[in-house]
């Protein structure tokens, strides 16, 4: 195996093009485990952590955020302004592993590893994230929920890689939240994860909503049906129940040692309600609405 740590996006692309079995590495917390266990044996590991543009978090002119693909969870968790705007996304990323894992693991690696249970993914999708993909034809932006194709596989082309996650400017009176269910209290893999984003209008009705479900289907589910059930409502009980029903209908889970399919479908509803409550509280706290 070969290891390279290019310092520009262009040289990283060249290395990927030059070798069909090359693989991008960010934090390596999935990739190195897969390599040492013999699950993957890339002929070339292209480490993207020495590319300066990929190593920072910057606020964009419109008030959104551009998070470099090499930035680990620990750094996001220390970023006060980012956390203030998108606490749900940052908390989702922070749930990944221990403090040691946080020192390396990136949300983009979580997305591109394409595990159905990746915690950062529903948080990112609910926040309305896109990722910027670099390839031989230049750059393109892709909705985060369109990146995973199947467990362990993405929709990226062979020689493409993600250089950043883009979060939109946070609208006024809005909040996001991510919750997961695990059998233990720490250090475990999500049985169900739910990401919720809500923005309220002047009169207190839901103006915008996004709901993302993790670990209940082969890839993250961006559940517009559930979000539509909330939009226009004032989160009356019927609206929330309709969202829960829509989310449960969108589930396509498996039975495994962590939980049965039935348990997962049930838990999605419980976690969505709680995530809605947290997102609402965060949205209202900003304007002192209650």
């Amino acid at each position: 195996m070969q290891y390279s740590a290019p310092e520009t996006i262009e040289s990283a692309l060249k290395l990927l093009e030059s070798d069909d079995d090359a693989r991008v590495m960010a934090g390596g917390t999935d990739l190195i485990v897969q390599m040492t266990s013999g699950m993957r044996s890339p002929s070339h590991v292209v480490d993207i952590k020495r590319i300066p543009e990929l190593c920072g978090v910057v606020q964009t002119a419109d008030g959104g955020w551009k998070i470099g693909a090499a930035v680990p969870g620990a750094e996001l968790n220390e970023h006060v302004e980012l956390k203030r705007d998108w606490p749900g996304f940052v908390e989702a990323t922070d749930l990944i592993g221990s403090m040691q894992v946080q020192g390396r693991a990136t949300p983009v690696g979580n997305l591109c590893n394409a595990s159905p249970a990746g915690d950062a993914v529903p948080g990112m999708v609910a926040a309305g994230a896109t990722v910027t993909v670099a390839g031989s034809n230049g750059f393109r932006d892709v909705a985060a929920h369109d990146v995973p194709a199947a467990p362990g596989r993405t929709n990226l082309e062979k020689n493409e890689f993600v250089i950043a996650v883009n979060l939109p400017p946070k609208p006024p009176n809005s909040g996001d939240a991510y919750l997961r269910f695990i059998p233990r209290t720490e250090m475990d893999i999500a049985v169900v994860g739910t990401g919720v984003f809500l923005a309220f209008g002047e009169s207190g009705h839901v103006r915008e909503a996004r709901i993302a479900l993790g670990a209940i289907a082969p890839t993250v589910v961006f559940c517009t049906e559930a979000a539509d059930a909330l939009i226009g409502s004032r989160l009356e009980e019927e609206a929330i129940e309709a969202a829960v029903l829509a989310a449960r209908n969108a589930c396509n889970p498996i039975d495994d040692k962590r939980g049965t399919a039935e348990f997962r479908v049930h838990t999605v509803g419980v976690l969505i309600k709680r995530s809605i409550a947290i997102a609402t509280q965060r949205a209202k706290r900003q304007v002192g609405m209650d």
Partner: peptide, 26 residues
């Protein structure tokens, strides 16, 4: 050897990481 136990913890540029989850050339 898989990031779970922390026995291999070292600090790299001021952050604690599992040295079993880092390649030597890094």
């Amino acid at each position: 050897g898989s990031g779970d136990c922390g026995a291999c913890s070292v600090r790299v540029d001021g952050r604690v990481v599992c040295s079993c989850l880092m390649l030597a050339p890094e």
